[in-house]
Design a protein around this nucleic acid. Structure first.
Lengths: 294, 294
DNA sequence: TAAACATGATGCCTTCCGGGTATCACTCGA
DNA sequence: TCGAGTGATACCCGGAAGGCATCATGTTTA
């Protein structure tokens, strides 16, 4: 078994890609750090870093292990805080996951409501994509998620927060921005397209594919975060389908155009939580937000 | 910061509610276990176990911390397994670039083979012209390309997938379609020609120029994608040289005629990959596809 | 083209942490 | 009141981890 020190060492080296600098950051010298990493690799049973005498690089396994290591460290950091809160009597802790897009819209008012009605409940926030939220809710690392379908209704209870339309994000001054009518499939025939990842952002991917028949040849980037998409649009890399709440982002150099779409407001955002959660703070919050009766 | 041993110790004591039995389970003696728990409580900053000289009980904070401790141990157990799977290439990510033409022919069977032998490898597909694939392979954004020569054999290793003939695409009902013999250079003297871009589709451009002396005055369009060519032919804009696999496209209003050509099946499609790739999933896939020996 | 430089690995020494044994302190039941 | 049971403490020892010096190797520079 490895140690937390080894994990911290690995994370530092993976971030610096340089043993000397990583060691400095950890307030130690380079040699023990080298040995720490060697031991970690032996404990893990896989090479995590590819190093020749000039540069350090992560292997595929290293990249995956880095994610796990960060999660472990984050969990280890938070665990004592939770325990201390409970020991001191401030037992209310609500760990909320939210998607980037929901951060611009519903998250603020929701937190305000919780703070107003349940002032003694501490809130821990994490920005996560839907899939990560579902993992977190299932494993008990999260209490409440602001996420998109689909999710297992056997395991999770949910409350529809809002529906919104998809819009087309285009660079300012783009030819399509001059149109006074809604954008049609026809208009996009030759537009370079920034598309959602079919794995990481499955919900949006399916939604767009259902809405419009995509010219896959036009797809110039595949990304998983709305903010990344909007940034790429601002950089004139192409156009992108984004939920209406992305207009609240305030990124310069982007305009949002309405789409001709058969379904009205097809993008859903739900609050979801694990039916088997035992966190009393969650129950109180759900009742206070009127997501759940009594 | 606490250690994994302390967590394991705490979990054992919390489950046994008895230091002696917990120590036995951990193959150690009771005194160091006591100290482990003390240190853990100090690191956490809260009392986790209530012990008088007769019995041991979990505190409220201890119950919460027990959840977190179990989660940490589970994550720590799983992380190396994930990493090893990726290192062995049994799971991971394979990013494949393919040209439009290869999408109609070899891509399907190839993906099927990978899916069958490496079910846990995720596949990311991007349709790209040869030049873009080469850039992607070089920069590490792609693992495998389905592309056409030429490419640098120092940097890339490759496997010839197939050779095929060039054929002439003409609009249905075109005068040449009545001929029962192969098309010759002579027949094309006065035909409007849809030609490959000499930069974007260099491979086809060179191939056609080598095969037939082009009347440049006849070139009505210069395009880089086979699909575009066939569409333009269907729109009666002219005739075009396309690889035989374009017949699989199923575009209406186009016929394909054999060419009298000195070279048999001159169009090559190769699988190419970066020799210095470290992605284990790539090696695994190459062996499974028999592009590379064990 | 050789010398200086950069960078990760190794060898060796020392310190300190963690585990073991022996024992203490306290409680409870006979 | 004494013995049994249980967790805590005292003390010792071995090994792990860190530091310093140095090596091996590849790159840059003069």
């Amino acid at each position: 078994m490895f140690t937390f020190d080894q994990l911290a060492g690995f994370i530092a080296v993976a971030e610096e890609l340089h043993f000397g600098r990583a060691a400095e950051r950890l307030n130690m010298t380079q040699p023990p750090l080298s040995r720490q990493i060697q031991k970690l690799e032996k404990a893990v049973g896989a090479e995590l870093l590819e190093r020749d005498n000039r540069k350090v690089e992560l292997t595929a396994a290293g990249r995956a292990f880095l994610d796990e290591a960060r999660r472990l460290m984050a969990l280890a950091d938070r665990a004592p805080i939770t325990a201390r809160r409970i020991a001191s009597g401030r037992s209310g802790l609500l760990r909320i996951g939210f998607t980037a897009a929901s951060g611009f819209s519903i998250l603020g008012p929701l937190l305000e409501e919780i703070a107003a009605t349940l002032p003694d409940v501490d809130i821990d926030l994490q920005e996560l994509v839907t899939g990560e939220q579902i993992d977190g809710l299932q494993s008990g690392e999260l209490d409440l998620g602001l996420a998109r379908p689909p999710f297992d209704n056997e395991v999770f209870d949910s409350h529809l927060l809002y529906r919104e339309a998809m819009v087309l994000a285009v660079p300012s001054g783009h030819a399509l921005a001059g149109l006074t009518r809604d954008i049609t499939e026809e208009d996009l025939r030759d537009e370079p397209l920034i598309m959602h990842s079919s794995t990481q952002a499955r919900y949006f991917y399916d939604l767009v594919v259902r809405m419009i028949s995509i010219q896959h040849a036009n797809v110039v980037h595949t990304v998983s975060q709305i903010l990344t998409m909007v940034s790429l649009v601002a950089a004139k890399r192409g156009v992108a389908f984004v939920p209406h709440s992305a207009t609240l982002l305030g990124v310069h150099g982007v305009e949002f155009l309405p789409l001709q779409s058969s379904v009205n407001d097809p993008v859903e955002l739900h609050a979801i939580w694990n039916r088997s959660s035992t966190n009393p703070a969650l129950g109180r919050a759900l009742r206070s937000l009127e997501f759940q009766e009594n």
